[in-house]
Simulated scan of single mutants.
Amino acid sequence: MHFSIPETESRSGDSGGSAYVAYNIHVNGVLHCRVRYSQLLGLHEQLRKEYGANVLPAFPPKKLFSLTPAEVEQRREQLEKYMQAVLRSVERT
């Protein structure tokens, strides 16, 4: 199984909420879902409870302010590497 995050999308919030970045998660080359950073952070926290903090790689840090396009790209790359590392870590357990 191969996870990738080849692209992001700028989305407007529901009911006039603030804009956010959606990360397009692909599994084996096929779009699986679009998620927010906060959803991936929630997944990370659940995985830590299940597998322990020492098994998982570090999660990309949260930023206090809006991200520039370069920072969005950097985070996309970090999240993609994180997802791939999680898969390798979980497969070993």
Rank of each mutant, 00 (worst) to 15 (best):
H2W: 01
P6D: 02
E7H: 12
T8I: 12
E9F: 11
S10T: 13
S10K: 15
S10C: 13
R11V: 06
R11L: 14
R11Q: 14
S12P: 10
S12W: 15
S12F: 14
G13V: 10
G13F: 12
D14T: 14
S15G: 10
G16D: 12
G16A: 13
G17W: 10
A19K: 13
A19T: 14
Y20A: 11
V21W: 04
V21R: 11
A22F: 08
Y23N: 06
Y23M: 07
I25F: 08
H26A: 06
N28F: 03
G29V: 07
V30C: 09
H32Q: 14
C33W: 01
C33N: 11
C33L: 08
C33Y: 00
R34G: 14
R36F: 08
Y37T: 03
Y37N: 05
S38T: 08
S38I: 08
S38C: 06
Q39D: 07
Q39G: 08
Q39I: 02
Q39E: 12
L40D: 01
L41S: 00
L41Q: 09
G42P: 01
L43P: 03
L43V: 12
H44W: 02
H44Y: 00
Q46A: 13
R48K: 09
K49M: 03
K49A: 07
K49W: 02
E50A: 11
E50S: 14
E50H: 13
Y51P: 06
Y51G: 10
G52E: 07
G52C: 04
G52Q: 07
A53F: 00
A53L: 02
A53Y: 09
N54H: 12
N54I: 05
V55H: 07
V55Y: 05
L56I: 04
L56R: 04
P57H: 03
A58D: 02
A58E: 02
A58W: 00
A58H: 02
F59Q: 02
F59N: 02
F59I: 01
P60G: 05
P60E: 09
P61I: 01
K62I: 10
K63M: 12
K63H: 15
L64S: 15
S66R: 15
S66E: 15
T68E: 12
T68Q: 12
P69Q: 10
P69N: 09
P69I: 09
E71G: 10
E71R: 12
V72I: 13
E73P: 07
R75Q: 10
R76V: 05
Q78E: 04
Q78T: 00
L79V: 05
E80M: 09
E80C: 08
K81V: 02
K81P: 01
K81S: 03
Q84E: 03
Q84V: 09
A85G: 00
A85P: 05
L87E: 04
L87C: 05
R88A: 11
R88Y: 01
S89K: 08
S89I: 01
V90E: 09
E91Q: 11
E91F: 00
R92K: 13
R92G: 09
R92E: 09
T93A: 13
T93F: 14
